[in-house]
Simulated assay, not measured.
Amino acid sequence: MDRTTRTAALWATIVAVPVAVIVALVAISALPDAEPEAAPSSGAPRPVPTTPVEMAAPTLGTDETVACRALTSQLPVTLRDLPQRPVSAGPEQNVAYGEPAITVACGGDQPSFLATDLVYPLSGVCWHATETASGSTWTTVDRRVPVTVTIPKDYESPGQWTTEFSATIASTLLSREDVPTGCRS
Protein backbone atom coordinates (compact mmCIF):
# COMPACT_ATOMS: atom_id res chain seq x y z
CA MET A 1 0.00 0.00 0.00
CA ASP A 2 1.42 3.34 -0.91
CA ARG A 3 1.69 6.30 1.39
CA THR A 4 -1.22 8.24 -0.18
CA THR A 5 -3.61 5.32 0.23
CA ARG A 6 -2.57 4.81 3.85
CA THR A 7 -3.06 8.49 4.66
CA ALA A 8 -6.51 8.45 3.07
CA ALA A 9 -7.45 5.31 5.04
CA LEU A 10 -6.19 6.89 8.26
CA TRP A 11 -8.25 10.08 7.69
CA ALA A 12 -11.32 8.02 6.79
CA THR A 13 -10.97 6.13 10.08
CA ILE A 14 -10.40 9.32 12.08
CA VAL A 15 -13.62 10.78 10.65
CA ALA A 16 -15.73 7.60 10.53
CA VAL A 17 -15.24 6.38 14.11
CA PRO A 18 -16.51 9.55 15.87
CA VAL A 19 -19.40 9.84 13.37
CA ALA A 20 -20.36 6.21 14.07
CA VAL A 21 -20.22 6.84 17.83
CA ILE A 22 -22.44 9.93 17.51
CA VAL A 23 -24.97 8.07 15.32
CA ALA A 24 -25.04 5.19 17.84
CA LEU A 25 -25.63 7.57 20.76
CA VAL A 26 -28.45 9.35 18.93
CA ALA A 27 -30.06 6.01 18.03
CA ILE A 28 -29.82 4.74 21.61
CA SER A 29 -31.28 7.93 23.05
CA ALA A 30 -34.23 7.67 20.64
CA LEU A 31 -35.14 4.17 21.89
CA PRO A 32 -37.85 3.97 24.55
CA ASP A 33 -36.72 3.11 28.07
CA ALA A 34 -37.16 -0.53 29.04
CA GLU A 35 -38.90 0.54 32.23
CA PRO A 36 -40.36 4.02 31.76
CA GLU A 37 -40.89 6.13 34.83
CA ALA A 38 -44.49 6.52 35.87
CA ALA A 39 -45.51 9.96 34.66
CA PRO A 40 -48.28 11.68 36.56
CA SER A 41 -51.54 11.40 34.69
CA SER A 42 -53.05 14.69 33.58
CA GLY A 43 -56.40 13.20 34.55
CA ALA A 44 -55.26 12.25 38.05
CA PRO A 45 -57.03 14.16 40.81
CA ARG A 46 -55.05 16.97 42.39
CA PRO A 47 -54.54 16.80 46.14
CA VAL A 48 -57.18 18.89 47.88
CA PRO A 49 -58.13 19.55 51.48
CA THR A 50 -60.50 17.08 53.09
CA THR A 51 -62.23 19.79 55.08
CA PRO A 52 -65.83 20.48 54.01
CA VAL A 53 -66.52 23.38 51.68
CA GLU A 54 -68.71 25.98 53.40
CA MET A 55 -72.10 26.03 51.63
CA ALA A 56 -75.59 27.13 52.61
CA ALA A 57 -78.47 24.69 52.40
CA PRO A 58 -81.79 26.51 52.06
CA THR A 59 -84.87 24.52 52.93
CA LEU A 60 -86.29 22.83 49.85
CA GLY A 61 -89.84 21.76 49.10
CA THR A 62 -90.56 18.09 48.44
CA ASP A 63 -90.37 18.42 44.63
CA GLU A 64 -87.14 20.43 44.82
CA THR A 65 -85.60 17.91 47.23
CA VAL A 66 -86.38 15.01 44.89
CA ALA A 67 -85.06 16.92 41.86
CA CYS A 68 -81.87 18.00 43.63
CA ARG A 69 -81.15 14.50 44.95
CA ALA A 70 -81.59 13.16 41.43
CA LEU A 71 -79.19 15.79 40.09
CA THR A 72 -76.47 15.44 42.74
CA SER A 73 -76.54 11.64 42.44
CA GLN A 74 -75.71 12.00 38.72
CA LEU A 75 -72.90 14.55 39.01
CA PRO A 76 -69.40 13.19 38.41
CA VAL A 77 -67.10 12.18 41.25
CA THR A 78 -64.31 14.08 39.49
CA LEU A 79 -64.68 17.27 37.48
CA ARG A 80 -61.84 17.18 34.95
CA ASP A 81 -58.98 16.59 37.40
CA LEU A 82 -60.76 18.07 40.44
CA PRO A 83 -62.07 15.52 42.97
CA GLN A 84 -65.38 16.00 44.70
CA ARG A 85 -65.14 17.38 48.25
CA PRO A 86 -67.45 17.17 51.24
CA VAL A 87 -69.78 20.13 51.85
CA SER A 88 -70.69 21.70 55.21
CA ALA A 89 -74.44 21.48 54.66
CA GLY A 90 -76.98 19.95 52.29
CA PRO A 91 -75.09 17.14 50.54
CA GLU A 92 -78.39 16.23 48.86
CA GLN A 93 -78.38 19.62 47.12
CA ASN A 94 -74.76 20.82 47.16
CA VAL A 95 -71.57 19.50 45.57
CA ALA A 96 -68.04 20.94 45.55
CA TYR A 97 -64.92 20.15 43.52
CA GLY A 98 -61.23 20.97 43.96
CA GLU A 99 -59.36 23.78 45.68
CA PRO A 100 -60.38 26.53 45.41
CA ALA A 101 -63.76 24.89 45.26
CA ILE A 102 -66.07 25.00 42.27
CA THR A 103 -69.50 24.64 43.84
CA VAL A 104 -72.86 23.42 42.56
CA ALA A 105 -75.98 24.42 44.53
CA CYS A 106 -79.36 23.02 43.57
CA GLY A 107 -82.63 24.65 44.58
CA GLY A 108 -83.52 27.99 46.04
CA ASP A 109 -85.05 31.05 44.42
CA GLN A 110 -85.26 31.57 40.69
CA PRO A 111 -82.68 34.16 39.65
CA SER A 112 -83.79 37.67 38.89
CA PHE A 113 -82.12 39.69 36.18
CA LEU A 114 -82.89 42.35 33.60
CA ALA A 115 -84.54 41.34 30.33
CA THR A 116 -81.59 42.95 28.56
CA ASP A 117 -78.99 40.82 30.42
CA LEU A 118 -77.11 38.24 28.43
CA VAL A 119 -78.08 34.60 28.85
CA TYR A 120 -75.95 31.76 27.56
CA PRO A 121 -77.49 28.65 26.03
CA LEU A 122 -74.67 26.17 26.66
CA SER A 123 -75.00 22.46 25.88
CA GLY A 124 -78.77 22.32 26.31
CA VAL A 125 -79.07 24.55 29.39
CA CYS A 126 -79.55 28.31 29.56
CA TRP A 127 -77.34 30.17 32.06
CA HIS A 128 -77.15 33.69 33.46
CA ALA A 129 -73.70 34.76 34.62
CA THR A 130 -72.81 37.29 37.30
CA GLU A 131 -69.23 38.41 37.90
CA THR A 132 -68.13 38.71 41.52
CA ALA A 133 -64.90 39.82 43.17
CA SER A 134 -63.90 36.20 43.71
CA GLY A 135 -65.03 34.74 40.37
CA SER A 136 -68.35 34.22 38.66
CA THR A 137 -71.70 32.71 39.48
CA TRP A 138 -73.70 30.93 36.79
CA THR A 139 -77.38 30.13 37.39
CA THR A 140 -79.75 28.17 35.21
CA VAL A 141 -82.69 30.25 34.03
CA ASP A 142 -84.58 27.59 32.09
CA ARG A 143 -85.10 24.92 34.78
CA ARG A 144 -87.98 24.55 37.23
CA VAL A 145 -85.41 24.02 39.96
CA PRO A 146 -82.50 26.45 39.55
CA VAL A 147 -78.88 25.35 39.79
CA THR A 148 -76.08 27.76 40.67
CA VAL A 149 -72.46 27.01 39.81
CA THR A 150 -69.75 29.19 41.34
CA ILE A 151 -66.40 29.30 39.54
CA PRO A 152 -63.47 30.94 41.40
CA LYS A 153 -61.21 33.35 39.46
CA ASP A 154 -58.41 30.75 39.57
CA TYR A 155 -60.14 28.85 36.76
CA GLU A 156 -60.03 30.23 33.23
CA SER A 157 -63.07 30.18 30.91
CA PRO A 158 -65.78 29.79 33.57
CA GLY A 159 -68.45 29.12 30.94
CA GLN A 160 -66.53 26.05 29.84
CA TRP A 161 -66.47 24.75 33.41
CA THR A 162 -70.20 25.36 33.65
CA THR A 163 -70.90 23.28 30.55
CA GLU A 164 -69.44 20.29 32.40
CA PHE A 165 -72.76 20.17 34.28
CA SER A 166 -75.15 21.05 31.44
CA ALA A 167 -75.84 17.55 30.09
CA THR A 168 -76.60 16.19 33.56
CA ILE A 169 -78.84 19.16 34.37
CA ALA A 170 -80.65 18.88 31.02
CA SER A 171 -81.30 15.16 31.49
CA THR A 172 -82.25 15.40 35.18
CA LEU A 173 -84.19 18.64 35.77
CA LEU A 174 -87.39 19.66 34.02
CA SER A 175 -87.45 22.79 31.86
CA ARG A 176 -89.55 25.83 32.69
CA GLU A 177 -92.22 26.92 30.25
CA ASP A 178 -91.40 30.63 30.60
CA VAL A 179 -87.75 30.76 29.58
CA PRO A 180 -86.04 34.05 28.76
CA THR A 181 -86.04 35.10 25.10
CA GLY A 182 -82.32 34.50 24.64
CA CYS A 183 -82.78 30.87 25.66
CA ARG A 184 -85.29 29.95 22.95
CA SER A 185 -84.03 28.10 19.93
Rank of each mutant, 00 (worst) to 15 (best):
M1F: 11
M1Q: 08
D2V: 04
D2G: 15
R3C: 03
T5N: 07
T5F: 04
T7L: 15
A12F: 09
A12Y: 00
A12V: 11
I14D: 08
V15E: 01
A16T: 09
V19F: 09
A20P: 00
A20E: 05
V21H: 02
A24Q: 09
L25S: 12
L25P: 04
V26T: 10
A27Y: 09
S29D: 14
L31E: 12
L31G: 04
L31D: 09
P32S: 06
P32K: 05
E35V: 12
A38W: 01
A38L: 12
P40H: 09
S42G: 12
G43K: 08
G43Y: 11
A44R: 11
R46L: 14
P47G: 04
P49G: 15
T50M: 07
T51S: 14
T51H: 02
P52M: 03
V53W: 08
E54Y: 02
M55F: 05
A56C: 02
A56Q: 13
A56H: 08
T59K: 14
G61H: 01
T62E: 15
E64P: 00
E64N: 07
T65V: 10
T65G: 10
V66H: 08
V66D: 12
C68W: 07
R69C: 03
S73E: 14
S73N: 15
Q74N: 14
L75V: 03
T78D: 11
L79Q: 06
R80A: 13
L82T: 02
P83L: 05
P86K: 07
P86C: 05
P86M: 06
P86A: 13
S88D: 07
A89K: 12
P91C: 04
E92N: 12
Y97L: 04
E99C: 00
V104A: 10
A105S: 15
A105V: 08
G108A: 10
Q110E: 12
P111I: 02
F113W: 05
T116C: 00
